[in-house]
Simulated assay, not measured.
Amino acid sequence: MPELPEIETVKRIIGPQIRGLAIESISVRRPEVIAHPAADEFCRRLRGQTFDATTRRGKFLVIRLESGDKVIIHLRMTGCLLVTPADYPEEKHTHIVFRMDNGKALRFSDTRRFGRLWLLQKEEADTYSGMERLGKEPLSPDFTAEYLASKLGKRKKAVKECLMEQGAIAGIGNIYSDEILFAAGIYPARPANSLTGEEWERLAEVIPERLSFFIRKNEISPEEYLETKGRDYRNTPFLQVYGHEGEPCPTCKTSLCRMVIGGRSSTYCPSCQQGDKEFNESRKTKEQTV
């Protein structure tokens, strides 16, 4: 699933291309990808409106219209947005096409059809998308160690799982939680309530630094993005641990290990992330005293 850096990339590519353009017509091939309102009403309300600014909230894209209405989009696993010339070959799983007054089209495709779109009117409360339940943006100035400790510091769950809780931190998923914990030197299975104040401070620094790093590495031109059909802009060459089980750690050359935490794969370095040894010894001590 695309995470915060990928959605930020899509925002920066798509937003400038559609800003100020009016929607002349809309074709909906798969009505079920429109979660609110019904597809007919969605098209009726949007036809003739003009795109304004495009923003991001966690893993959600928000396309604002000059009227004050907004389209919220979640790409989920395989969703993709492309701005194309009218005669550009259409992707097989294209579900919605917005035709604009400059002759180009904004197309939404999704192989697995998990992605969703919501249209909210200017004063309409968002009780549909779940975006209002998101936690703090990790790139915001008030993303602090105090915030992290207050939201997660009493949790018994593994810190890896806690970093992926969208109600606490918006936008981090399986890939970047691995990268963040490696950079912070924290064992992914550590209970969040075992982290020290110093470790929360370290996470508060590492989280925005790593996400910003991957946003920079994701930079791609609109032409390249279209040429690769929005698929080849991700950070695979720059990932240090995710997906590298059995390979040498980029820091100490120890073989990277993999475990499953909360049903999700996690790759880590047993040497650089030595919390595993400390945590296990602490757990054994507690068990012996019971």
Score class of each variant (00 low, 15 high):
Pro2Met: 05
Pro2Gln: 05
Glu6Pro: 03
Glu6Arg: 05
Val10Gly: 01
Arg12Ile: 00
Gly15Trp: 00
Gln17Gly: 00
Gln17Cys: 05
Ile18Asp: 01
Arg19His: 01
Arg19Asp: 00
Gly20Thr: 00
Ala22Met: 12
Ile23Ala: 02
Ser25Thr: 13
Arg29Pro: 00
Arg29Asn: 08
Arg30Gln: 12
Arg30Asp: 09
Pro31Arg: 12
Glu32Asn: 14
His36Gln: 08
Pro37Tyr: 08
Ala39His: 11
Ala39Gly: 02
Arg44Pro: 00
Leu46Thr: 03
Gln49Asn: 02
Thr54Gln: 11
Lys59Phe: 09
Leu61Gln: 02
Lys70Pro: 00
Val71Tyr: 00
Ile72Ser: 04
Leu75Pro: 01
Arg76Ser: 14
Thr78Trp: 11
Leu82Asn: 07
Pro85Gly: 10
Pro85Lys: 04
Asp87Ala: 14
Asp87Met: 12
Asp87Val: 12
Tyr88Ile: 02
Glu90Ser: 10
Glu91Arg: 14
Ile96Cys: 05
Val97Met: 03
Phe98Tyr: 13
Phe98Ala: 02
Met100Asn: 01
Lys104Ile: 00
Ala105Leu: 09
Ala105Val: 12
Leu106Thr: 00
Phe108Tyr: 15
Arg112Glu: 01
Phe114Gln: 04
Phe114Met: 14
Trp118Gln: 03
Leu119Ala: 03
Tyr128His: 12
Ser129Met: 08
Gly135Ile: 13
Pro138Val: 10
Pro138Ser: 06
Leu139Thr: 09
Pro141His: 13
Phe143Ile: 08
Ala145Arg: 08
Glu146Phe: 05
Tyr147Ile: 07
Ser150Trp: 06
Leu152Ala: 15
Lys154Pro: 00
Ala158Phe: 13
Glu161Leu: 15
Leu163Arg: 04
Met164Pro: 03
Glu165His: 13
Ala170Cys: 04
Asn174Cys: 07
Ile175Phe: 10
Asp178Phe: 15
Ile186Lys: 10
Tyr187Ala: 12
Pro188Thr: 01
Ala189Pro: 06
Asn193Tyr: 13
Ser194Asp: 12
Gly197Ile: 09
Glu201His: 09
Ala204Phe: 09
Glu205Asn: 11
Glu205Lys: 15
Val206Tyr: 04
Val206His: 06
Glu209Gly: 06
Arg210Tyr: 01
Leu211Tyr: 09
Ser212Arg: 14
Ile215Asn: 06
Asn218Gly: 15
Asn218Ser: 15
Asn218Trp: 01
Ile220Ala: 03
Ile220His: 04
Glu224Tyr: 08
Glu224Ala: 13
Leu226Tyr: 05
Glu227Asp: 13
Arg231Asp: 06
Arg231His: 07
Arg231Gly: 06
Asp232Met: 09
Arg234Lys: 11
Phe238Trp: 13
Leu239Val: 02
Tyr242Gln: 08
Gly243Trp: 06
Lys253Ser: 14
Lys253Asn: 13
Cys257Met: 14
Arg258Thr: 09
Arg258Ser: 14
Met259Glu: 14
Val260Arg: 15
Pro270Thr: 05
Ser271Asp: 06
Cys272Ile: 06
Cys272Phe: 05
Gly275Val: 05
Gly275Ala: 13
Asn280Ser: 13
Ser282Pro: 02
Arg283Gln: 14
Lys286Phe: 10
Lys286Asn: 07
Lys286Tyr: 07
Glu287Leu: 11
Val290Gly: 11
